[in-house]
Design a protein around this nucleic acid. Structure first.
Length: 484
RNA sequence: GGUCCCAUCGUCUAGGGGUUAGGACGCUGGCCUCUCACGCCAGUAGCGGGGGUUCAAUUCCCCCUGGGACUACCA
């Protein structure tokens, strides 16, 4: 391990930050933090048609939200900038020139249609589609002719014969035969460098020591290694981690539902829960502990513990973790995070008494898997939002329910019970009057008061609602369900 | 089709030549005066198949099967 390893996360701003990419960023960041190295973010914005600034902003925002802070990169700068590839075009051109001079590169005049046709032919012959080198040995005369036709060439790298070998830090020894690699484009006909070329130049110039990325880049590695060789650069070490999969075991993508960090953030998943979950996927910590603080995760992180096989993204487990993290928040802090979600559910937090709202949140906080569920739990505390659900109506129509509701009503009216002992006192009365207990006793009470068959604990409900509100609700229920 | 990668409960995983194959999520049951959630207890379920190597293979090797990634002038 070098003194100070340098790793990078290099997203292209063509969409929101995907959880798979977030995991790659996380692994790099954990690696840097674990070994006391540097974590750099580089924006790969060479695909001009698909690059949008809002995506870059979003990605950076999501990284910060997760607590993945970069030592060098956009906005914060650093010694090895610029950190946007599009601002580094001159640099790539310098190295292209070098490769041209050394005859490692040649101009290719093929159009995309021609290349597509070649691919199809090869495929129909059951051969691997790859560039067969049509422009590799063009005469000057032929080149001039293409130029005069107005064709602007792309630059292709001359792939040498031989094999490329490297030792993947996660997967072990890797070996690729150059015969299966066609001459590939390193600078496109619009003079913008292609991915494999830009990455190699940047990683070298930015002194990256370890490239940690998804398995989907494994087959790019031999191409990049060839470029390192041609450029005379020392290559970094490579580590290719497994991918996050959807339920059907294919690479997680939009058709699987929520896949971006933003999706989970909007749903009310805590950043520490998502980060913890992502670090759990495709690996494990030394102990049996699964809920770990960032510090512990950094401490435990190691590439050796990274699994080689893909891992299905399990939202149920994420939610379980989220619940655990929610429990660790104090109610005031939790409330602050919850307010936007309460507003989304159609409430105006400004006109609701803070203290009362806190007690409501206190009553339901343990039920929440994600913040966006808050609307389903909070409505029972607002008289005007209480409707009798189908389930509740059925419960109330059971033969024993009528008596329960009646004695509940009577107990509330009698003023026999003190306000501060309402729940216990009323339930004792109802229980002794009806002779019922357990589910048959409590379900009609719950249904009569909340209109639902599930929700926060009844004692908390009584304490927050108070006699007046409860009585009003019971009367309403009696009127609508029993019609008297 | 080609190249490459991978393979332990439904899911995430631990383990590793001799184990009652361990944990977590989920699910089921029980307890906590109802449900849900929390907490606790219990239960459910797994080494893809075939050959080797070996006294012994889930573990090591090979083949098959299955799954996946890549196969762009995207990254």
């Amino acid at each position: 391990m070098p003194e100070r390893p340098r790793v990078r996360f290099a997203p292209s701003p063509t969409g929101n930050l995907h959880v798979g990419n977030a995991r790659t960023a996380l692994f790099n960041w954990l690696f840097a933090r674990h070994y006391g190295g540097a974590f750099v973010v580089r924006i790969e914005d060479t695909d001009r048609a698909r690059t949008f600034e809002r995506f870059e902003k979003g990605i950076l925002e999501d990284l910060r939200w997760l607590g993945i802070i970069w030592d060098e990169g956009p906005e914060s700068g650093g010694e090895f900038g610029p950190y946007h590839q599009f601002e580094r075009i001159d640099i790539y051109n310098r190295y292209l020139k070098k490769l041209v001079e050394e005859d490692r590169v040649y101009p290719c005049y093929c159009t995309e249609d021609e290349l597509e046709a070649e691919r199809k032919t090869l495929l129909s012959m059951r051969m691997m589609p790859r560039y067969m080198g049509k422009c590799r040995n063009l005469t000057d005369e032929e080149r001039r002719r293409f130029e005069s036709e107005g064709r602007s060439p792309a630059s292709r790298f001359k792939v040498p014969k031989g094999v490329v070998e490297f030792n993947d830090l996660i997967r072990g020894p890797m070996k690729f035969d150059c015969d299966s690699i066609g001459d590939f484009i390193i600078v496109r006909s619009n003079d913008i460098p292609a991915y494999n070329f830009a990455v190699v130049v940047d990683d070298h110039l930015m002194k990256i020591t370890h490239v940690i990325r998804g398995e989907d880049h494994l087959s790019n590695t031999p191409l990049q290694l060839l470029l390192y060789q041609a450029l005379g650069f020392d290559p970094p070490l490579f580590a290719h981690h497994s991918l996050i999969l959807g339920k059907d075991r294919s690479k997680l993508s939009k058709r699987h539902g929520a896949v971006s960090v933003k999706d989970f953030r909007d749903r009310g998943v805590l950043p520490e829960a998502l980060l913890n979950y992502l670090s759990l996927l495709g690996g494990s910590f030394a102990g049996t502990k699964e809920i770990c603080s960032v510090g512990e995760i950094i401490e435990e992180f190691s590439l050796e513990r990274a699994g080689k096989s893909g891992a299905i993204f399990d939202e149920a487990k994420l939610e379980w973790l989220n619940k655990a993290y929610i429990r660790n928040y104090s109610t005031p802090k939790l409330s602050e995070l919850l307010f936007p979600f309460i507003e989304d559910a159609g409430y105006n937090c400004d006109i609701i008494d803070r203290k009362w709202l806190h007690s409501v949140i206190e009553a339901i906080r343990d039920n929440l898997g994600t913040f966006s569920e808050i609307g389903d739990y909070i409505d029972v505390f607002f008289d005007e939002r209480c409707e009798i659900s189908e389930d509740a109506a059925q419960t109330l129509k059971k033969e024993y329910a009528g008596a329960v509701v009646k004695s509940l009503h009577d107990a509330l009216i009698s003023e026999e019970c003190a306000e501060d002992d309402l729940y216990r006192c009323v339930m004792d009365i109802v229980s002794s009057k009806t002779g019922l207990k357990g589910k048959k006793l409590f379900m009609p009470v719950r249904a009569a008061i909340t209109g639902k068959t599930w929700g926060p604990e009844l004692d908390k409900l009584f304490a927050i609602l108070g006699r007046e509100s409860i009585l009003k609700r019971v009367k309403k229920t009696v009127a609508t369900v029993y019609g008297s």
